[in-house]
Structures are given as C-alpha cells and as structure tokens.
C-alpha cells in the first residue's frame, strides 16, 4: 500500500493531537478507507495510543475500516424515507448490485450503505450517490442512475485502454 499520501496528509496537519479527526477524514477520502497501517502511522505521528485512533475510526460511520467501492450509495432508511418506500429502493439497489448493506461489490465498484436520517425528509425517499442527493426516488429512477454510473465507468475504462493502446502503437 502506498503510504505517501498519508505522510503528506500528516505533514499538512501538524502533530497536535486535535488534528486527528481531520487526518482521519483526509485519509478516508484519499484511500476510501482507513487501513491498519494508516492507523498505526497516525498513532505514531500524533503520539496517541493505537486504540484511541482505532476507536475513533470505528465510532464514526463516516470512516470505514474496510476498503469502500469507487462509488458510495447511501440509501436513507429514516422514518420519512421508510414510509415513502425506502425498503423497496434498498432491495432494488441490493438486487441490482448483488451485495448486502455495508458491503462492497466483488468488482470494487459500489458500496451500499443505509443511514438513519439525512435531514432531508421533505425530499423523501432520498438516495445519495457519491455525495450527490437524489430526491423522490423510485426503484426505476435508482436503476437508471446505477446504469448511468456503470456506463460511464465502462466508457472511462475504454478510454484508458485506448490510451494504453495508443501509447503502445506510438
């Protein structure tokens, strides 16, 4: 695992203990999860026992201790969303991606999570995909959104392959 990004983050945040949350947030963003190596290194640099860093990373739902997929899909399961059909949305997403809540698809593309409320009950049911909120969702709309993401991913992959081929030809 490449820890250079981690060192950059630690260098930028200084060595004060209170920087720990910012460091964890940046590490989560950069690596899409917080690895054991990262936790041990943060513990050394900030002079905080390993267990304290682990506890924090474990406590907050925003942090993941296992690698998350390239796309994070959060289905709100709060009361308002539940009433408006969130369980059907979740079933649709899980069936489409063949995964379970909190788990990542085998190809590492998607992680599906549920959340208890996003504070956007007027927009219920809400699904968040990669930080973007989608309101008044239906199973059909979710299916279309996921297909769009898959399509875009494939395009990006094809472009990568073309670039590699172009380089090889040149």
């Amino acid at each position: 695992m490449d820890l250079s990004r981690l060192e950059e983050i630690l260098d930028s945040k200084g060595s004060e203990t209170f920087a720990i949350m910012e460091v964890l947030q940046d590490v989560q963003e950069a690596y899409r999860y917080i690895s054991e190596e990262a936790i041990v290194r943060i513990s050394e640099r900030l002079d905080v026992p390993v267990i304290e860093v682990f506890r924090l990373a474990n406590f907050y739902k925003a942090f993941s201790l296992t690698p998350r997929g390239r796309h994070l899909i959060t289905v709100c399961a709060g009361t308002a969303c539940h009433v408006q059909g969130a369980p059907r949305l979740l079933d649709t997403v899980l069936a489409l991606l063949n995964t379970k809540p909190g788990e990542t698809t085998a190809d590492g593309a998607f992680t599906v999570e549920t959340v208890n409320c996003l504070g956007a009950c007027a927009l219920a049911p809400v699904v968040v995909i990669d930080g973007k909120y989608y309101d008044h969702m239906t199973p059909g709309k979710v299916r279309a959104l996921l297909e769009d993401i898959r399509f875009e991913d494939e395009l990006a992959e094809d472009e990568d392959e073309e670039e590699v081929e172009a380089e090889a030809n040149a």
């Binding site: 026992p49 390993v50 267990i51 304290e52 682990f54 506890r55 474990n58 406590f59």
Partner: peptide, 9 residues
Amino acid sequence: QGSLGMIGR
C-alpha cells in the same frame, strides 16, 4: 500501555 479501549457505541 494504552492498548485496551472501549470500542463501539
């Protein structure tokens, strides 16, 4: 040592 801690909520 600071090895043990309370985990979870």
